[in-house]
Amino acid sequence: MQYLVSVIADGTELATPGEEAAIDAFNERLQAQGSWVYANGLAAPSTATLIDGRGEEPVFTDGPFLESKEFLAGFWIIEAPNLDVALKLAAEGSKACNRKLELRPFHT
């Protein structure tokens, strides 16, 4: 079972060197135990572009689809047998990156 773990940031500060190191260590643990699928950080929300390709011509608009104080700063995709295991991993991840996380299961 795969889960999306979103990193919720409320400021534009990048991760500190200490946080970077903790995230690296956490990622290595994930990989070692086979829970790692993918992870990456995202550039600032202001770099986002909206696309609507449903019409005849695609329309491109500058900016994120939701303007809010809190935004998605990165994510993990993890593999876990059930929610209890996923929650435990996410709690470790939250500590490592020093941010709040949201955990959501993939559809299948």
Binding site: N82, L83, D84, R104, P105, H107
Partner: peptide
């Protein structure tokens, strides 16, 4: 939620 998130 119990089903989709697989609460054990």
């Amino acid at each position: 939620k119990i089903k989709a998130a697989r609460i054990p």
